[in-house]
Amino acid sequence: MDEGENYTYKDRITYQFSELYTSRNQSFDLKIAIKLKGEETVFSVPFTVPEQIKPSEVYAIYKEVDIKGQKFRVEKVMISPLRLGVKISIDPDNTMKILQFEDMRLEDEKGEVWGSIRNGTTAFGGEDGKYTFFLQSNYFSQPEKLYLRINKVQTLKVEEAFAEVNTETGGWLNQPKDQKIQLLQSNKHHAEFIMKNSGDEEFPFFFIGSAIDANGEEVETPMTGKFREEEATHWNLNFDRTDYVNPLRLELFAYPNYLEGDMKIELK
């Protein structure tokens, strides 16, 4: 930064409780610490959840869906003033691992998008093959008809759905066959990955989920980063410790490999 210049940065934070919040205290303080040139400044933003919150609309569906041989069941859709949740269970016998439902959306009777994913998928679950995916809600608009649409899912063969890397040697021991993402450089503190861009459309996901070392112990990645250049996209991982045992197994959270179909379920 140039001395004497003023800079403005904008970002958006979405915080979601992993479990139902049951406390009677509906007031919160959002605290953010920013460090600049070694000096830390803390901002505190107080807010209170309104007492009168409109109830969610719940649509029970329980419909089996098959996209190119990969099956899942749409169980229910929950529409609240803040967000839209779609609960899905994935068939454990699938030959491919479904990573993301990238174009999941709700459409009205005119075919216009009523609710959709923004900036990648946000979801809870996964341990038992059940997920709840969250979309942006348009709760206060009341169309006559609503349809849940899914036309494209990210998938990989089960045996390719993780990357196994040695951060000390920079070696790949397992990765998707097409090798779209490459390990650029690594050590026990840090790893950087790169993928060549195809067209103008940006891949909005951070593609790695959990990291497990050779002893089966989790290695947390408290700092991650992503930036896009004209020709390539870069991802950075910083590991919270260096006493782990290589190789690391990196579960893939997202990957640009797609199956296309045409799923349309009427909600109302």
Rank of each mutant, 00 (worst) to 15 (best):
218 E>N: 12
235 W>C: 01
135 L>E: 10
29 D>Q: 00
154 Q>R: 07
33 A>H: 02
5 E>T: 12
165 V>P: 03
230 E>G: 08
205 F>P: 00
215 N>W: 07
55 P>F: 01
76 K>R: 09
128 D>E: 11
135 L>P: 02
131 Y>H: 04
54 K>V: 07
134 F>Y: 07
40 E>I: 15
259 L>W: 05
102 E>D: 09
239 F>P: 00
102 E>G: 01
251 E>K: 00
264 K>H: 07
12 R>K: 13
215 N>Q: 15
245 V>L: 04
111 G>H: 01
75 E>D: 10
48 T>E: 09
247 P>G: 03
32 I>K: 01
16 Q>L: 04
86 V>S: 04
234 H>C: 02
182 Q>F: 13
216 G>H: 06
240 D>K: 09
252 L>E: 02
194 I>N: 03
45 V>P: 00
57 E>G: 01
154 Q>V: 04
72 F>T: 12
158 V>D: 03
241 R>C: 13
258 Y>R: 05
247 P>N: 02
147 Y>K: 04
54 K>Y: 11
34 I>C: 08
227 F>P: 00
169 T>H: 03
39 E>K: 12
170 G>I: 06
20 L>T: 11
37 K>F: 14
188 K>L: 12
180 K>Q: 11
138 N>K: 15
37 K>D: 10
185 Q>S: 12
37 K>T: 09
170 G>H: 04
110 K>H: 13
41 T>E: 14
176 P>F: 10
173 L>E: 13
70 Q>P: 01
126 G>A: 11
60 A>V: 15
95 T>W: 10
43 F>C: 02
175 Q>C: 08
130 K>A: 15
190 H>W: 06
190 H>C: 04
42 V>G: 05
48 T>S: 06
180 K>C: 06
82 L>H: 02
135 L>M: 05
108 D>G: 01
104 M>L: 13
8 T>Q: 14
162 F>R: 09
98 I>F: 05
15 Y>N: 04
24 R>P: 00
102 E>T: 15
116 S>K: 06
82 L>P: 00
48 T>K: 05
144 E>T: 15
261 G>H: 01
72 F>D: 06
137 S>L: 13
44 S>L: 04
128 D>R: 10
154 Q>A: 05
249 R>M: 12
234 H>K: 14
88 I>D: 00
34 I>N: 06
184 L>E: 13
194 I>M: 14
242 T>D: 10
206 F>Y: 11
109 E>F: 04
183 L>C: 04
67 I>G: 00
188 K>H: 08
100 Q>Y: 01
97 K>R: 13
7 Y>N: 08
180 K>V: 11
220 E>C: 12
79 I>L: 02
93 D>G: 04
29 D>E: 06
34 I>L: 13
152 K>M: 10
254 A>S: 10
174 N>C: 09
90 I>W: 01
21 Y>P: 01
96 M>E: 07
180 K>P: 00
242 T>H: 08
3 E>F: 11
188 K>W: 11
104 M>W: 04
114 W>V: 09
216 G>D: 09
16 Q>E: 08
154 Q>M: 09
129 G>E: 12
171 G>S: 09
243 D>I: 10
69 G>S: 05
71 K>W: 11
53 I>N: 08
212 I>R: 02
106 L>W: 07
65 V>A: 03
140 F>V: 05
108 D>A: 06
262 D>W: 02
197 N>G: 05
127 E>R: 03
